[in-house]
Amino acid sequence: MQHTESIDGAGVAFKAAHFEALLDAPHAADFIEVHAENYLGAGGPPHAQLAALLEQLPLSVHGVGLSLGGTAPLDRAHLQRIRALCKRHAPTLFSEHLAWSSHDGAYQADLLPISFDRQTLRRVVEHVDQLQTALQRQVLIENPALYLEFAPLGDGMDEVDFLDELSQRSGCGLLLDIGNVLVSAHNCARDASDYLARFPLDRVGEIHLAGHSRQALNAQDWLLIDDHASPVAQAAWQMLRAVIERGGPRPVLIEWDRNLPAWPVLAAEVASARAIIDAARPMGATGIARA
């Protein structure tokens, strides 16, 4: 049976290297998330592994390549493949990014920054609308990790206002990536606490957490790089506590995509997220039943 009704608790970005460990003890996580673009092949082990895990755990599918912030129309062929994937594995959640990656038919293999202004908002609303129509469901849109900010076209908008209005106008939910909040705040000289205080938590359907690293700009200054290659930073755990206390429990995903640790290390991160979520539940409630 596939669990498609709801997602609750703490999940993990699934990697094939952890398949056996997760299959042996699936309830070390409450759900799994995979990148859509890694599962667009016709068959083979990736789909078989996913199907085996979905006997035990619900699924979230995370797109990284639709280029919703692009000035070009969405790639219809790619959208059709994403739709077929959703039909095949029936994920409970589907999310994508507030970013662009394709231009003039070439894919840039990174999540590139948009500017925050009315013209861009109109375009992203159209693209999110097109995506939700194609998938016949609500999607979640993730706040970006920024290494630079572009000057707006005309009157600028604040990123939180942009996401809030995108969500109101398109009907999409939001994916709050706390690591991205920290990275963008440092890199673009913003106040992360202020960003979180103004973030519309009632629109948030999922939270992401991941590690980041530093890259020097010169002897005094550095950028934070959202590389998903290390444990979640203490500052991010504190922010998660504050967000859950204020907004209530939400599904929380641990992303660790490079320099993969042994499964117990990752499982411990998932357990930490679960403890924070459970601590914020009303007395006696423990979320979904666990074996």
Partner: peptide, 23 residues
């Protein structure tokens, strides 16, 4: 001119390196 903040060339290079290293 469209990039806000200091070190715009180094900031653009982060995206370039990410994309190249992925490929």
């Amino acid at each position: 001119a469209a990039v806000r903040g200091n070190h715009p060339v180094a900031r653009i290079a982060v995206y370039r390196n990410n994309a190249r290293s992925a490929l």
